[in-house]
Amino acid sequence: MAAETGAPPAELVISGWAVSSPYGLGRTAFAGGLASGRRAIAPLDGADWPVPYEEAGLIPGFDIKAVLGRKGTRSMDRVTGIAAATVGMLLEQYGAGLAADAESTGLVLGTSGSVQSIMDFTRDALTGDKPYLVDPARFPNTVMNCPTGQSAIRHTLKGPNVTVSGGAATALLSLQYASRLLRGGHGRALLAGAAEEFSVQRARLERVADHGGAAPQPLGEGAALFLLEGATDARESGRPVLATVLGSRFRAFQDTARAGTALEACVADVLAAAGAAPDDVELIAPGTPPGLLGKQEESALDGLTGNRLPVRSLVGDAGAASAAFQLAAVLAEAEADPRLVDRLTLVTAVDRDGTAGALLLRPA
C-alpha cells in the first residue's frame, strides 16, 4: 500500500477516460459508434475462432505486438494486452504530471482474468514434453492480477495496484475501491476500470452457463479506464472535470428473483445519499442482461424516468468490462449533449452470481 498522501479529497471526479472496444481503439471510435447506433458485432471466422457462436464483438484487428511493440509482449495474453493498451491511451492523453508523482498514481483494474491462459497452461502441464512440460514465461498469465501488474509495470505506476473481480458489476466495484483508496489518503490519482477478452475457452464456458432461461448473447471484449482524483487536484493539474462521482451502492442477492429488489435498494440508497430524487436522473445506462436478470433490472428502474442508453446490444456481453462500457457511454453522451451538464446519470449492473450495483454521477 502506498504511503498516505495528505488530507483526503472532499470531492472525487473523473478527469479522463480511454476505451478499447469493438468499435476500435480510442474514445472517438467508441463515441461515434454509439452515436450512430451501429451494432459492432460481426460474424466470426470459424477457422480462427472455433467457438459455439457465429458472431462476437471483437476489437477490430487487435494485435498485441502491433499496438504495444515487441518488447515485453512475447508471453502477454490478450486481456493483458487490451488492459495495457488502454492504460497507455489514458496516460498519453491525460497523464501529464502524473509521472512526476508515480508513487501516488495507481491502478485499480477489474477483470475476470484469462480463462484461456489458465486452461492452456493446465493442458500443457498434462500433455507437454518432459522434463519442462510448460513454458514458465506464461505462468503469470494464469494469475488474475496479471493484467493489473503488467500494466502498472509497463507504464510506471507505482501507487496502489489492485485487481477486482465481480462479474458484470466489476467496473462499478473498481470505482468504489479506488474511491475508498483516495478518501483514505493512499493516492492522489487512480486509474480505475475493467478489461475483458474474447477467447475460445471463454466462449465455450459462456455457452453452457445459466442465462436465466434466455439464449446467450453474443460476447464482446475490450476495456475502459477512468482517471479518478480529487476535484482540486484535477483543476490544479489542468485536467478537465468530466463528471463528479456522487456515490455507489451494492447489494447481494441469493435468488435471481430478488435481484430487482436488491438493485432497487441500491438506487434508492445512492439517490438518498446524494439528496436527489428519482425524477432528477436524466440518463440511465443499464446492464440489460438476458433472461430473468434483465427483467429484474427493468422492474427496479421502472420508477426512473431518465432516458435509457443501450450499450450491450451494440457491443455484446463484455463480461467484466460490461459496466465499464456503460460508464464510458455515459461520458461520451454527456460530452455530446450539453443538456446533461449538471444533471444526474446512473449506471446499474446485476450479475448472475448475486451482485447488484448502482453508480451515480453528475457530468460537468
Rank of each mutant, 00 (worst) to 15 (best):
A3L: 14
E11G: 06
S15Y: 06
W17I: 00
W17S: 02
A18G: 12
S21I: 02
L25R: 03
G26P: 01
R27Y: 01
T28Q: 15
A29M: 08
F30H: 02
A31T: 07
L34H: 01
A35S: 11
G37H: 06
D45L: 11
A47G: 09
W49S: 09
L58Y: 01
I59K: 11
P60V: 09
I64Y: 05
K65N: 11
A66Y: 00
L68Y: 04
L68M: 06
T73I: 12
R74Y: 10
R78Q: 10
G81L: 12
T86A: 05
M89F: 12
L90H: 08
Q93S: 13
G95P: 08
A96N: 11
L98N: 11
A99W: 08
A100H: 10
S104P: 04
L109Q: 00
T111Q: 05
Q116M: 07
S117L: 10
I118K: 10
D120Q: 15
D120F: 09
R123G: 10
Y132R: 15
V134Q: 10
D135W: 11
R138E: 14
T142L: 10
N145H: 13
S151C: 06
H155G: 02
L157H: 01
V162I: 14
T170A: 07
L173Q: 13
S174I: 09
S174M: 08
L175M: 14
S179I: 07
R183P: 08
H186F: 09
A189W: 07
L190G: 11
A192Y: 01
G193Q: 07
G193L: 04
E197N: 11
F198V: 03
Q201M: 14
R204A: 13
R204N: 06
R204H: 04
E206V: 00
D210P: 02
H211A: 08
A214P: 07
A214M: 03
A224K: 02
L225N: 02
F226C: 03
G230S: 07
T232A: 14
R235A: 15
S237Q: 13
R239A: 07
V245R: 07
L246V: 05
R251A: 14
D255I: 11
A257G: 15
R258A: 15
T261K: 13
L263G: 04
C266A: 11
C266F: 04
C266N: 05
V267M: 04
A268I: 02
D269L: 05
A277K: 08
A277C: 03
P290L: 03
L292Q: 15
E297L: 10
D302L: 15
G303P: 01
G306M: 04
N307W: 13
D317Y: 00
A318E: 00
A318W: 00
A320M: 00
A324C: 02
F325T: 00
Q326M: 03
Q326D: 06
A329T: 00
E335S: 12
E335C: 02
R339D: 14
V341R: 15
V341C: 11
L344M: 05
L344V: 06
T345A: 13
L346E: 02
V347L: 10
D351Y: 02
D353M: 10
D353N: 13
D353F: 11
G354V: 08
G357M: 05
L359R: 08
L361S: 10
L361V: 12
